[in-house]
Write a protein that binds this DNA or RNA. Structure first.
Lengths: 106, 106
DNA sequence: AGCACATGCAAAGGAATATTAGCAGGTGCC
DNA sequence: GGCACCTGCTAATATTCCTTTGCATGTGCT
């Protein structure tokens, strides 16, 4: 037991976008940096950055800024291992720690 | 094994709403009809109906119209058992059957 | 200087969601 | 008839999300 119901909802919301699923899938095969990942997934870099931010905000990926040998700053992303067993019973327990306030996404 | 990546995304999108999680949680404790469920969850019936429709469209719940002893039409909902093990590896396999349609402007 | 590559961010428009309010229908009971 | 229940729909609003476009920074190489 580690996450609140709100955290779960945030994770599910984050993974409810095909682009972000593909990003996680790509990173599951190994870490990568933004520009290259954008080329491999064939999406714009700006779009990828937005999705990466959401994934990181949800705790699904981590980033690390590194300097390549030729001095260029490159931001590497990698997946944080996670495991959620989605069942009605699990949702029932998660619902106990769920706030319903309006304008809550944050 | 059974669902496409698109189906998975749809399920996750459906469960990425606190109201719908609470609905599933409530139904996990037993079937119920719309008006009563709305009272128990303390939300408007119109709102609940919208969420129930989405849950049913995603295949997470089922509905059945029944007649009470006193002749009133009552729509009962119940959860369809489901089990999704959410991991990076699982997403990687799901991503293979994921449509993105859209021109790719590089 | 100019090109290729890396990063970041903000504004703007369109699309999709969430929620409310209000209407319609039905039954049975006092 | 008038309540108290049940069901269903729509239109209109507010809000959030998605995506593109554009500009800013920096590096190294020719």
């Amino acid at each position: 037991m580690c996450c609140t119901g709100d955290d779960l909802v945030r994770v599910l919301a984050t993974l409810s976008n095909p682009h972000r699923v593909r990003v996680v899938a790509a990173l599951a095969g190994g870490r990568n940096y933004v520009s290259r990942l954008a080329r491999e997934l064939d999406i714009s870099r700006a779009l990828l950055q937005v999705h990466l931010k959401k994934l990181e905000a949800a705790g699904l990926v981590s980033s690390r800024l590194e300097l390549s040998e030729d001095g260029k700053a490159m931001k590497f992303y990698e997946v944080n291992p996670f495991s959620v067993h989605l069942t009605p019973e699990f949702l029932a327990s998660a619902a106990e720690t769920l706030t319903i306030e309006k304008g809550s996404p944050r």
